[in-house]
Design a protein around this nucleic acid. Sequence first.
RNA 1: GCGCCUGUAGCUCAGCGGAUUAGAGCAUCUGACUACGGAUCAGAGGGUCGGGAGUUCGAAUCUCUCCAGGCGCGCCA
Length: 596
Amino acid sequence: MLSIYKNLKECLHDAFQKALSEQEISHVASKSLFDPQLVNASRPEFGDFQANGALPLAKEFKLPPRQIAELVVEQLIQNQIFSELCEKPEIAGAGFINLRLKKKSLTKEIKVRLKDKRLGIPKAKSISVVIDFSSPNIAKEMHVGHLRSTIIGDSLARILEFRGHKVIRLNHVGDWGTQFGMLISYLKLVAPEALTKANAINIGDLVAFYKEAKQRFDLDDDFQKQSRKEVVKLQNGDKDSLKAWELLCNQSRQEFQKIYNLLDIKIIERGESFYNPYLKEIIKDLQNAGLLEIDEGAKCVFLSGVTGKDGKALPVIVQKGDGGFNYSTTDLAAIKYRFSPTPSGDGANRVIYVTDAGQANHFKGIFQIATRAKWIPKTARVEHVPFGVVQGEDGKKLKTRSGETVRLSDLLDSSIQRAEDDLRQRLIDEKREESESFIKEVSTTVGLAAVKYADLSQNRISNYQFSYKKMLALQGNTAPYLLYALVRIAGIARKGGDLNESRHELEFNEPQELKLIRELLKFDEIINEVEEELLPNRLCGYLFELSQIFNRFYDQVPILKAKNPYRSSRLSLCKLTADTLKLGLHLLGIPTLARM
RNA sequence: GCGCCUGUAGCUCAGCGGAUUAGAGCAUCUGACUACGGAUCAGAGGGUCGGGAGUUCGAAUCUCUCCAGGCGCGCCA
C-alpha cells in the first residue's frame, strides 16, 4: 500500500496547506508544522490510515484541534484523487482524521498485485551492501554461537538482494592469529601427518587437539615459546607452515560447507588472513591522520568520548608491543577495504556486521576510528546488527547436559529428528501412509524451518530462549503454523481450485475477505521497514498475522463451494496469500511444502 | 567502578522517531468436526508497561534518576 500511502500523504499535505493558509498566521512558515502525520490506523475500527497532524497545530493557531481537522477535511473532500481513494474522512477523538479506503481502491490494488511477480515490492535504487555474518573459526566446529549470525545475516542478505541491491555476503572466518601457532606445534607432537596430508584426521579430533593445545599453551612455557615461533614462521610465509595452515583451513571449510548446504546459505569466504597485506598500511594511515599514539609500548588509537577504568580515554591497540597485529587491526583493514572503491576494495555504500551484542563496544570503537581516518564515505552507512545470546530453557547460556558448547550440526540434526518423530506419530494418529522420502523431506524442511523461524521471529537484540518444543509446535507463531497455511492452500488447488482463474471480475463482500486484502497489501511496507531497520522479526510477525487472518477466512468463508464471481475472487486471494507467504518465507531462508 | 543491552499478562515475546480503549502466542477455561486437511476456528479470564520524577494537550514510547538481570571493559578473537 506504499503507493496509496504516498498519494494520500500528498493529498493531506495539500489539504493542510490550503486549510491553514486561510488562517492569518504569517509567522508560521515552518513546513514541518504541516506534517500531516499520516500513519496506519491504530485500530481497524478507525479505518486504514489516520492523520494526527491537526493536534500539534492547535496551539500555534489557537484553534481547537477538532476544528483544524474539520478545515482539513473540507479541503480533502474537494480533492478528486482523494475522493476516489477514500470514503469520507471521519474526525475522532481529540482531532484525529480517520481515513478508510474505498473497496474499489482495495480491489484495484489486489488486481495489480496479482499480476506482479514482485508482489508490489518495488526495486530500490541499487547500492552495494556488504554483509558480514556467520564467521566461524578455522579448526573449530560451528556451534550455537554461530547460529544467530548465520540465520539473521542470510535473511538480511536475501531481503536486500530482493530489493535489488548488490549484496556481498562475507564470511569473515577466523583463519589467522596465535591459535595457529598453538595448533601447529601441538599437531607436530601428536599427529604430524595432519600437517602434510589432507584430511588425515577428522574434524572432531582436530577440535579436541585444539583444546588440548590451548591447555598446554596456558601451562607449559616451552610449548608457548614454540607456538610463538610457529606463528612467526607462518606470518613470515614459511612454506611448510603455510601448507599446514592451508590443510587445516580446507578441512574446516568442508565442515562449514556441509552446514551451509543444509541451511541453504550462500556466503563468500574472506577470512582475516585476506587483510594481512593491508595491515601495515593501516598503521601508516592512522599515523598520517595523527591518530596514532604509543602507550606502554603498543601503538594505540585513543577513542574520544569513551573512557576506561581509570577515567582516561580508552585505547584501541592496533599494533602490539611485539610488533604483531591483532583483531582490531584486521577489522580496521576490513572496514577500509569494504568502503574503498573497486577494484582495490568493495565499493560498499552500506556495511552491515551481524555479530553478538557483546561486541557492540568493539565495533563502536572501530567505526569511530574509521570515521576519524576518513575511510567511510559521507553518504555511506555502517551498522552493527547485534543479537543476544542463545539461552536454554533454564535462562542460562545454552550448553549440552555435560556442560559443553552445543555443536551446530547436532542442534540441527536434533530438530530434524524431533520433527520426524512428530510426523511419524501424526501419521499413525491420522492413519496416513507416506513414503520414506516424503517423511525425510518434510521433517528436514520442518526441522530446519523451525530453528530458523524461532530465531528470526524474536527481536534479535534480546537474548533468545531456545526450545525445540516451542519452535516445533503446530500452533502459535511458529514455522509449522505458517507452513500449514500454505499446505491448506495447496489442498484447495488439489481439490480442483484453479488459483490462476481470472475470467471473472474480482468481487469481495465478506469482512474476512477485506481483512485479508488489507493485510496482503501491507507486505510492501513491511519489507521496506526491514530493509531500513534490519529487524527480520517484523517480517515474521507479519507473516504470522497474515496466516492467522487467512485461516479465519478459510474457516469462515466457503471458497470452492461459492459461486462465481466469488469463487474465483476468493481463489485469487488464496493465490496471493500463498505467493506472499512463499516469498516472505523465502526471504527468511525457509523453503515451503505442498503437503506435510 | 565505567560502558552497552534488557526489564510489558502466569510463561515466551510484539509494540518503543508520542496520539483515540496497551497487543499476540503458549498455558488455563468454554464452545464449534456429515466441511476446502480441526495441524483449525469462535469466545473468556489475566496488565498500576521494573519504581519514581520531568517534558507535552497526550508517554510503554522522549529526558533524568533509582532498582534488578545479562554482557563487555589495554597488547585473545
